[in-house]
Design a protein around this nucleic acid. Sequence first.
DNA 1: AATGAATGAGTATTCATTCAT
DNA 2: AATGAATGAATACTCATTCAT
Lengths: 221, 221, 221, 221
Amino acid sequence: MSEDTPIKRERRKQARPGELLEAALSLFVEKGFAGTRVEEVAARAGVSKGTLFLYYASKEDLFKAVVHETLAGRFVEWNEEFDRFVGSTADMLRYCLNSWWERVGATQASGITKLMFSEARNFPDLAAYYQEQVILPGTLLIRRILQRGVDRGEFAIPDLDYAVFSVIAPMIHLQMNQHSFGACVPAAFAIDPGRYIAAQAEILLKGLLQRPGQPLSGGQA
Amino acid sequence: MSEDTPIKRERRKQARPGELLEAALSLFVEKGFAGTRVEEVAARAGVSKGTLFLYYASKEDLFKAVVHETLAGRFVEWNEEFDRFVGSTADMLRYCLNSWWERVGATQASGITKLMFSEARNFPDLAAYYQEQVILPGTLLIRRILQRGVDRGEFAIPDLDYAVFSVIAPMIHLQMNQHSFGACVPAAFAIDPGRYIAAQAEILLKGLLQRPGQPLSGGQA
Amino acid sequence: MSEDTPIKRERRKQARPGELLEAALSLFVEKGFAGTRVEEVAARAGVSKGTLFLYYASKEDLFKAVVHETLAGRFVEWNEEFDRFVGSTADMLRYCLNSWWERVGATQASGITKLMFSEARNFPDLAAYYQEQVILPGTLLIRRILQRGVDRGEFAIPDLDYAVFSVIAPMIHLQMNQHSFGACVPAAFAIDPGRYIAAQAEILLKGLLQRPGQPLSGGQA
Amino acid sequence: MSEDTPIKRERRKQARPGELLEAALSLFVEKGFAGTRVEEVAARAGVSKGTLFLYYASKEDLFKAVVHETLAGRFVEWNEEFDRFVGSTADMLRYCLNSWWERVGATQASGITKLMFSEARNFPDLAAYYQEQVILPGTLLIRRILQRGVDRGEFAIPDLDYAVFSVIAPMIHLQMNQHSFGACVPAAFAIDPGRYIAAQAEILLKGLLQRPGQPLSGGQA
DNA sequence: AATGAATGAGTATTCATTCAT
DNA sequence: AATGAATGAATACTCATTCAT
């Protein structure tokens, strides 16, 4: 209670916002915004209710912070990554789907997707922010990949703007499922993410490729 | 005050549940389960709070009735419709997507989809019911269509069980979008359902067909 | 639906108030005034809620009617009966206790006692009415009996006014018990009314008699 | 604002349950369970509605706590007291009646008796608890006293099991009266507890004693 | 007279937010 | 900074009472 408390406390103080956001994220995803009690969030973060309000002025503020936190400028890095990518666009798209799953879908961050779809109408400004910070850059990134395929003569895509949804929709659906029915129906109905992504990738690529009869470089792993 | 009065009362009593369900559906979709006040539902249905509880024992019951109502026994009819279908499986799939949109997606019923994904974890029993009554029959119907394509040598599908998601995911995503971001972001980002479905159908069919090079019967309207 | 309905209806109409009061009595006794729903009373009486209000303007009115009904001028008759009584006062008192039980305690009427004790403070005017119509005449009747015993040299009673409670209290207690704990605790704790009254009568008479050593005329059945 | 402030809060927290119980007791006794509003209880205890629910999870819980509180482990002490008693059993019984009145009858606790008789059927589990924790030990205590009298040749009691009611009934009746008619009829009808108990004790003892002709040791004060 | 659908005042209970310690 | 006791606005639900049929 004497020499280590100042340091410990300092460390904990630094960590507080993160611990609170983490707790809030999982609870919001589990129970929705309205269904989550701030006291529960505080308890899961190991602090008192009062302390939570020291960091976030209201439950709504906390919710917004959760969303902001998990998004902050991910796309800059990802865009650069795709600039450097060497190889067929089919491989690129496969890499994109797998990375998406590993970096977002399989992590807590996927909960944000569910949250935003669920709460968009209750938080229009947050929805606009999400649209601008996530949906738009995400869509553009996918579009760039498809465009690359077209430019290099690999893909044949009549309606490029709407083709992006063929990539996005299956991934969103998988994430939504993990945080809704996937969490509460018997295991028999559970979706296996690896197999799901493989199956979607195969159909999708065949649907996009210029000459689908040709063997797909990189295989359908 | 003579011949129509005795009917009026009775007729209103008959109509009440439907009116309440309709009001509840739109409000639940608009504001979510927790965000909707029963008094509001009653008001929108043109009755008093007490009257609502005359027909539904609790808010939760009302919610369950809304879900039940919007899907009760639809799949029997739809399965029969596909039994009678004459023509290529590609056309069949296109017809499926368009019907889905017309009969569910473009109606209030699509709100249920969004609701269920949002509230599944808060209502596990309802989620199980929805899984069994909607997701399962829906999945089986799609699977039957794909199987028909394979059986007739039209489709080549390595993983049939997971291929169904290539049909389902885009449609669910479109519906989710209508009831979330689609309802609160500027028109510039709006998705046009007709074009969306056409684009998905084209890529999807090319991805499923045995010989994708061949012209697709029926065109991609 | 033609010739007998007017008669039947007429008969039922006559019977309505009684049926309602009977239903109300048993429910009020079971669940108390507040715990009883008028709809339940109506249902038990085989009529609709609306009909009940045709006969009794309010739930409170119904309650008062129940009390009034079950009391109406019983004591005139009972007083006369005791005027005519021939025999020892000990026998008279025994007869009194047994009659009390047979005519009130063992019937629905005993519920009124419980009701009045429970609700007296909520219905002061009714309590005053009960005090005047039941407690006072009842007390006087008992007092007359005791006085007779004293006058005839059978009883030795120092404080006649308060001695009446030695007769009243055990009987009230038995009735209260039947309508409270007696109705919801295991049979092992149940009180046997016959044995209870016999035991009380014996102790009571020994306590009142001039020469308790003498054999009690009439035995202690 | 310096030395006593930290204590104040804590002290109030300690005192809350007692204050709430006291307020609840008096209100429940005054108006019955259903007639008492939790807000009123809170107000009488000087706290807000919400605070009450911080200490008691529901109105029913509060009621149970009130009952529990007023009797918790009283009988252990009372039994011990009677183990130590020196003197005639007649004196012992008189002491018992007077103590009963002083310690229970004349206090708020007597309201519980009335409450329990009134609400037993609405709270069967509480009734069972009361039967077991109060009625049973109370009955056994009285029975021990009577048995002592018999063992020492002081009392002659044919039916010991039911003789206890001759002691219990008058005391219960006095308490019931205080909280029902006694609280709302004119003073002329009021019962004087001291005189009531003295009169009952005298008749009762004469009814129990082996040789009732003998002078009663201790007098009939 | 009889019905039972409709009403809405009344009440228990929850929970985000405040603030004294 | 941290706590958690206290608050009270908000809301689901009940039920006596009304009244059109």
